[in-house]
Design a protein around this nucleic acid. Structure first.
Lengths: 344, 344
DNA sequence: TTGTAGGCGTTATCAT
DNA sequence: ATGATAACGCCTACAA
């Protein structure tokens, strides 16, 4: 193991002071061409890179940003993260990701990030994305927000005053539901998500409101908030089959849930879209890779990641909120999983 | 923005020296219960956490590990990463992920990680996973390996001497191919991957060898190394359809490719497994979530991530290779996408 | 049991 | 144009 070379050593070997080496490194023009060349040669030879830990300490800035992600194995979050990472690197920052699953709780994850001295962070919180966040959650977020710039992803309850970027959940689900209704569907089901979550609430109430525009009400027997995975979709559909009350169209919380829904449909010889229509949310490669391709609500995770990172950088330099709410448009992408009901 | 409190301030407020505070923090027993309590109180009150940048500098160890991942949006890599992250956190380390997509090239990503002073790293390299890695790639990896402990994931060509963990690619694909042959299939296709890659080579040659056990040879017309995504699977199948030469069974490089293959099959009314059998690799939620559920080669990404991290920690403390090759067993998980050919 | 002081590898200010 | 030198926040001998 060759011990890493330090600036000190490099400097003495070059016959200059560390100050000069530092100047060369930071492209400070106050160095004669001659010495610059000499130093640069040694840098190249040793493949020397400044110790960013030391640099962070003296500069009082780590050039690291944190991102708390719920579940990176969900393509939706992966897309969001990747775009943020790309942008961060372009701007000279390292993005430090931590999944909420990894620590006991979000609080720990956030504190770990702060301890690492990230210059700012993007948080996709489940704790604060509650219809009724715990009082201590709100307090904790407030103190965190006083310590460093934070951008939230997803719309928090109004008790939290920080800037955030969020998709147009309501508009997306309104459009999706209206589309199904306009096709002639009347027995609509909602599958996935979790009852106490604000995002789910936003989407579900949009769903309900669209129904009521047609004089309909959401049927509790066709509502199944079973979670966020493919298995949740399976459970939801199986539940409907058991009760014998089948919808003629389903809207899911995300692509994973839709995957499970489609699986049960195929298994039960329910043809999509002939017997049942499906609309998913996320428009990831999953909705595009299935057959039929799923009609899906595109809430543009890449754009969310990008806007969040941009907002964070602005917040960091401006020391003030750039634009406290950034909305990402939702687009309904119509594909093969939706059609008029045969009975209509 | 409340400025973060430092140990200095905390110490003076507590009426002790920084040394004492430090002792409390590191649970050094050489502190009287009385002062320990007094200091701890202030720590709690201010929610004080030591600056890990400063700590890293003096301890000459960052407690950060790096992980270079090819594509975190692939559930296979996500699973691997998440398990490694979990373990790292349990052992008091922060895992710093960087995707090869994010920088111009792997070299840059690795250098960035080193610059951040990670104490060791896990690399899933595409550059070195070549049948013929570039000479400079090998040289670069060698120099990197001299700077810090590195564990590779995937079997490198023998020119690289470092420790690595790798799935039993050969055994997995042998088993899969033999299984199809034993069912009576004779027209086997291989879809996905990239021709110049070592991992692909390992899998494909196992595929070929199993065929030759039955006196058969791989048919170039049924080999389609089109890449790693769902679209690659689509392209592969479409190619077969165009040439009019359809296989009666397909083995793919991974679940994503299989997703595309199944899509085309469904689209073309090729029933799976009646008309065509499919075996994928990865056994992620995708293979489990499709209908029919896919027979899949499970190469246990979680276990890979776990073993890699454990090996890395050992390598770090032992200053020597713990066990230079760790093989992860591949298991063929038989599900509904494979059956005897109808014509058989 | 507690405090003093030097140093970790950089950067940046102030001389020269 | 270059070089001392003092931080940055923490840890750890060594002293007391």
């Amino acid at each position: 193991m060759t011990p890493k070379i330090t600036m000190q050593q490099l400097a003495s070997e070059a016959g200059v002071s560390t100050a000069t080496v530092s100047r060369v490194l930071t492209r400070n023009p106050l160095v004669s061409e001659e010495t610059r060349k000499r130093v640069q040669e040694l840098i190249d030879r040793y493949d020397y890179r400044p110790n960013s830990v030391a640099r962070s300490l003296v500069r009082q800035q780590s050039n690291m940003l944190g991102m708390l992600v719920q579940d990176i194995s969900n393509p939706y979050f992966a897309a969001m993260y990747l775009q943020a990472e790309k942008l961060a690197n372009q701007r000279g920052y390292t993005l430090l990701m931590t999944s909420s699953l990894s620590f006991q709780n979000e609080r720990e994850s956030i504190l770990a990030l702060i301890e690492r001295q990230v210059d700012g962070m993007i948080i996709i919180s489940t704790n604060i994305d509650m219809k009724q966040p715990a009082k201590e959650t709100l307090e904790f977020m407030e103190t965190a927000r006083r310590k460093l710039p934070i951008i939230l992803i997803n719309e928090p309850v109004r008790a939290f005053a920080g800037p955030y970027v969020a998709p147009e959940n309501r508009e997306g689900y309104l459009a999706a539901t209206r589309y199904l209704l306009s096709l002639g569907h009347r027995e609509l089901a909602f599958i996935g998500g979790n009852d106490d979550t604000n995002t789910v609430h936003l989407r579900y109430s949009a769903f309900c409101d669209a129904l009521s525009e047609y004089g309909l009400a959401s049927n509790p027997a066709l509502t199944c908030m079973t979670g966020y995975t493919a298995d949740s979709g399976v459970q939801g559909m199986l539940h409907f089959l058991e009760t014998g009350h089948l919808p003629d169209a389903v809207i899911t919380f995300n692509d994973l849930v839709a995957l499970g829904v489609l699986k049960v449909c195929t298994q039960q010889n329910l043809r999509v879209p002939d017997d049942i229509s499906i609309i998913s949310c996320d428009n990831s490669y999953i909705s595009r890779g299935l057959m039929p391709e799923l009609t899906s609500i595109d809430i543009q995770p890449e754009l969310q990641g990008e806007k969040a990172l941009e907002a964070l950088l602005k917040l960091m330099e401006a020391k003030e909120v750039p634009q406290s709410v950034i909305r990402i448009p939702a687009k309904l992408i119509v594909r093969g999983s939706t059609a008029r009901p045969r009975r209509a």
